[in-house]
């Protein structure tokens, strides 16, 4: 099954890519967008059909390698149709 991971910079960390993109959007007239944060999307193919097992594995992968928890948050999503 597939597991999706979204990694974002923690709130306290400056996100220069998000900030620059936000400025560009403002210049383009997107007045109602009040903030932009840019992160990473990671898709894992996991050899199991048990969502809980897949989630645990993804969590381990995040803690060990995929996220730097000093400055990043991660969110694990298991698609509904799984």
């Amino acid at each position: 099954m597939q597991v999706e991971i979204v990694i974002t910079l923690r709130e306290s960390i400056l996100d220069p890519k998000g900030k620059a993109s936000h400025h560009a959007l403002e210049n383009l007239g997107f007045k109602d967008i009040s903030g932009v944060r840019i992160g990473k999307f990671i898709q894992l193919d996991v050899d199991t059909d048990q969502p809980e097992k897949a989630r645990q594995l993804a969590e381990k992968a995040c803690e060990k390698l995929l996220a730097n928890t000093v400055m990043e948050n991660y969110e694990i999503r298991i698609p509904d149709n799984a």
Binding site: I13, L14, P16, K17, A20, N68, V70, M71
Partner: peptide, 8 residues
């Protein structure tokens, strides 16, 4: 930790 340069 290390982040992207402030001015990118």
């Amino acid at each position: 930790t290390m982040m992207a340069n402030e001015h990118l």
